[in-house]
């Protein structure tokens, strides 16, 4: 096996993993703490990407785009929470699914009305757009390396926030027993709103980071939200650590599956069958993992301590 290719693919997997973590962390916060099934989380990812893309094209700077789009996405998140989501807390999961699915349709149409269906390709500054030579002669796209760096930094920040701050304590308490923390006099409403906005920011940031790679498009969030749900199920619902480990795991499995599965298959079957079977199976791989986890460890890899 070619080692430098393997290193590149591992880095690619890591990059996909941290992106997925940004989406899944927000989702696990809202799902774990607020017990809210938010399918529209992916729409915030899309909104973040589109806002960032517009600002980038306006100002000509991707960094300014990100810096302005994060608070803008937070505002959108706040608005959504206050107008729609807030009314859903007392209701059951089916209502959450219905309402947030409706939100997806609204957001998709809204984006089509505002930005048109064609999507936006986001230019990168020159210094991000090249490749870097890593030790060992591995050449890797610098922007993907930046994503890994930013993602890991945010993961560390979230870890600090959740484990070492008072807010984090409330969040963990909320994930463990919501009734109890409201009984202790915590303003649960404000906490929920805040958590939702943070989740929106994280999803939006993931969208912003991915847009120079794939471009923005309508429904881009719906593509990632399913994977994000898989991740929080694998990692354990409400667990930040679980989300991180599962996201990296899924990112690596997906990328390495796409890279090597057909070679593996070619060992045991003829090339033509392998070419057809490998992409089909590599698309299924993460769901197979989820099924295994659900069968053998339904609470997920790192479930939050409850009660």
């Amino acid at each position: 096996m070619d080692t430098s290719l393997f290193i590149i693919q591992t880095l690619n997997g890591l990059q996909l993993g941290v992106l997925l973590f940004l989406v899944a962390s927000g989702l696990t916060l809202t799902f774990g703490i607020m017990d809210l099934v938010n399918l529209a989380h992916g729409s915030l990812y899309m909104i973040g990407a589109f806002i960032c893309a517009s600002i980038t094209l306006w100002t000509g700077s991707f960094l300014i785009g990100i810096l302005l789009a994060i608070p803008a996405t937070a505002l959108v998140g706040l608005a959504v929470e206050m107008t729609v989501i807030r009314n859903l807390y007392p209701r059951d999961h089916l209502d959450h699914v219905l309402a947030t699915f409706g939100l997806i349709l609204c957001f998709d149409t809204l984006v089509q009305i505002i930005w048109g269906p064609e999507g936006i390709a986001v230019p990168l500054p020159k210094w991000m757009d090249g490749q870097v030579l890593l030790p060992g002669g591995v050449v890797f796209a610098s922007y993907r390396l930046i994503i890994i760096g930013v993602g890991l930094a945010i993961a560390a920040g979230l870890y600090f926030l959740v484990v070492h701050t008072r807010i984090g304590m409330l969040i963990r308490a909320g994930a463990s027993n919501r009734t109890m923390i409201s009984a202790l006099g915590i303003n649960i409403k404000a906490l929920f709103t805040g958590v939702f906005a943070v989740g929106a920011c994280l999803a939006g940031l993931a969208g912003m980071l991915v847009s120079p790679i794939t471009g923005t498009s309508i429904g881009m969030g719906n593509e990632i939200i399913i994977t994000a749900f898989v991740i929080i199920i694998v990692g354990g619902i409400g667990s930040m650590k679980g989300a991180f480990v599962a996201a990296i795991l899924i990112g690596l499995i997906d990328t390495l599956g796409r890279s090597y599965l057909d070679d593996v298959f070619k060992l045991v079957m003829n090339a033509e069958v392998a070419e057809t079977a490998a992409p089909a199976l590599s698309a299924m791989l993460i769901y197979i993992i989820m099924a295994l986890i659900l069968a053998f460890r339904p609470q997920g890899l790192f479930p939050p301590k409850t009660r």
């Binding site: 290719l5 590149i8 693919q9 993907r144 881009m220 593509e223 990328t255 992409p279």
Partner: peptide, 24 residues
């Protein structure tokens, strides 16, 4: 080398793995 990638409404848009293979 040959790669078929996932298609449809949730098509694969990140081709990092495939491009790395192509390069190698």
């Amino acid at each position: 080398g040959k790669d078929f990638t996932k298609w449809g409404k949730d098509a694969q848009l990140d081709f990092s793995a495939e491009l790395a293979k192509a390069k190698a």
